[in-house]
Nucleic acid binder design. Sequence first.
DNA 1: GCCGATTTGTCCGTATGTATC
DNA 2: CGATACATACGGACAAATCGG
Lengths: 242, 242
Amino acid sequence: MAKRKFDEIYTDLKNKIETQEYSFNSCLPSEVELTKIYGCVRGTVHRAVKALIERGYLQMRQGSRIRVIFEPVERNIFRVGGIESFKEAALRNGFTYFTKVVKLEKVVADEEIATKTGFKIGDELYDVRRIRCIDGKALIFDKNYFLISATKGITEEIAEKSIYDYLENTLRMKIATSKRRITAELATAEDKNFLELDDYNCLVIISGRVFNADGIQFEYTESRHRPDYFCFEDTATRHKII
Amino acid sequence: MAKRKFDEIYTDLKNKIETQEYSFNSCLPSEVELTKIYGCVRGTVHRAVKALIERGYLQMRQGSRIRVIFEPVERNIFRVGGIESFKEAALRNGFTYFTKVVKLEKVVADEEIATKTGFKIGDELYDVRRIRCIDGKALIFDKNYFLISATKGITEEIAEKSIYDYLENTLRMKIATSKRRITAELATAEDKNFLELDDYNCLVIISGRVFNADGIQFEYTESRHRPDYFCFEDTATRHKII
DNA sequence: GCCGATTTGTCCGTATGTATC
DNA sequence: CGATACATACGGACAAATCGG
C-alpha cells in the first residue's frame, strides 16, 4: 500500500508541514523543484499537493506558488473526523475508556427500521447497543444494525472489543464507503437511562450507512454523543471540484 | 471555468446517476468505454470518477467495475454541507427567510478574541451579529468577525443581504479555503435572548476560519443553530487517500 | 485451482493553456 | 511584455486485482 510514489510525497510533505520545516504562511518549492527532490514527474507531485489542499494543509493559485496554511492547534477534544475511531480518539486524549454491551439481539427489519437504516423490510439484522464510557462516565450511546448475512458470528465479546477488527481481520470483509450524517436531537428516555447527561437535554448524533467493497450495505450506525464529547472538523474549498 | 473536459464528464455522470439512468447498485461502463463516449483519454475519465467516489456516488475496486451507490433520499432538512449557504438551503427547502442584523461594530482584537478567532491581538475587526429567521422563527444566530483591512466597507445593508456577494463581486476577493469545526454547547443567555429555543437547551455550533487566495485569514465565523435546524452530511472512504 | 482476458491503479513523458509576477 | 508556475489533457506502459471458463 505504501509503495505508491504519490503516498511518499504526500506523507513527506505532510510531515514537513506539521513539524514546521515548511512553516505557516511560507511557500513550498515549485512543483518542478519538487519533482527533482522526489525524482518523479510533475503529475505525481501535483496529485500529492492536491490531496494536501483538500485536507487543509496547502493552498494553491494558478501562476503563483503553493502556500502553507496549516497551523498546529492545541486540542484536548473528542474529535470525530473522517478517520479516528472512538478508541483512537480516547487514546489520543489520554482517557481511560471501556465499552459495555447492553443489547445484542437478532431482529427482522420492519418498515420503521427499514426506513431509518436503509435496509430492506425482512432483512435479518443484529441489533447491537453499546455504552461508551470515558474516564468512568457514560457519555456515548452506540446503536448499530448489522446485516447478518454479511457479518455472521458477532458475539458479545466481539462487540465489547471491536466489531470492525472482526469484520476486517476474521471475516476478511473489505470496507469501502460510509455515508454519514450529523444531527442533534432531544435526548430520549433511553438516552437518559443509559447516559450521564448532567444538564444537557440534547445529544449529537452521527448516523451512517456503511458499504463493503461489493457495494452491499452491511451496517447502519448511530452514535449518540453528549454534546461536550463531540467535535467534528473539516476543510472546505469553495467553488472547485478537485 | 466550465470548459474543463473533466467537469463535463463529472457533471454528465452525476446527472445520469441522479436521474437513475445509471441506477443504484448497477455498474458503469468500463473506463475504456467511457473514453469512447466522451472522446478523451482514460486519465480524464478516471479523475471524474474519483471525484464522484469522494462524494459518495460511486465505488470502485481495482479489477472490477465501477458501481453506483447513490440513492436519492427524501430531504426536507436543513443541510450544511460543504457547499450550500444559508440562503441556498432555505430556498431549496421552500422556506421563507430573512436576516436581521443585531450588531455591526468595529472592535480591536484582545487576547480572548484572538485566541478564539485566530486573528492577532490588535487586529481591527468588524463584529457582526445576525439572526436568521426561517418561516418567521428565529433559529440561527450568526456571529462573525471580519478583518477590516481585507473587507473594508461592510454596512448594515450588506450584512443583511450577503457579505460574501460583496466580498467576491465588489471587492473582488478570491475566497479559497475554510476550516470548519462542528461542536455543540449549552445555550448562553445571549442565545436565549435572540433565538426561539423552545425546549432545547443546547445549540449546534459551526465555527470556521476562512482564508482568501493570498493566504490571509479574513474571517472567523460562528453559526449557532437550533438543533432541529442543523444537518451535516458527508462521505468517508476508509483506508485510502485519493 | 489455474490461466488468460478484463478492468482499474499508478506513473511516465510531453504538450499546450492560462494566471501571476 | 516575457518569465515563471500552475492546470489540464494526451498517449503509452506496466502493475495489480478481479472474474469467468
